[in-house]
Write a protein that binds this DNA or RNA. Sequence first.
DNA 1: AGGACGATTAACT
DNA 2: GTTAATCGTCCTC
Length: 208
Amino acid sequence: MTVDRAWLARPALVMAPRLLNAVVVSDVGGVRVAARLTELEAYEGMDDPASHAFRGRTPRTAVMFGPPGHLYCYFTYGMHWCANIVCGADGVAAAVLLRAGQIVEGIDVARARRPAARRDVDLGRGPARLATCLGFGAEQNGLDLCDPASPVRLESRPARRAPAVVAGPRVGISAATERAWRFSLKDDPTVSTFKAGGRQRALGGPAD
DNA sequence: AGGACGATTAACT
DNA sequence: GTTAATCGTCCTC
């Protein structure tokens, strides 16, 4: 089952921890690769200096301003693609960056797409690495993750918040680094390494 | 029209 | 720990 679009119509900061353990299924290129999400980052659009949408709507960020449940793919450093799940109400810019995941289906395809990965846990350990495993590029930007007929879907919404969640500062950005908007599964080997200093803290709390 | 910089990665020392 | 690779996007003339 794909996730409900209405469930995603909340701020990215709310959705980022809730999307842990959700599964992205990609049939790009006629082959299936699926990844269980283990690390996510929230970007709140116009209130967030680190967000691509901070300076308003542009051709690149148009998807972020649209309805939730779509894929926002962007190209960076002249060579890498990264992917987000658009959240928030239609007209509000919000997105959750897929920072890491465990490949749970199509691991042979993922290995072929990521020849540099030495171990399987490294396949999707990093946003561009994960996007590469899933075959994401310009063609996948804007795809509807809630449509069962879409080539890329978001499936098996976790019934409740993942039991052991860690919150810490976001990575690879130069603005608003103090915001603890990066969420990961505690002790999961597929989570990317912390570079930016700053404390991380355990996150408890009730389910949903 | 020109230039700085990036929600990164891999291969170095 | 350091650094090259590499180009779309956006800001400033």
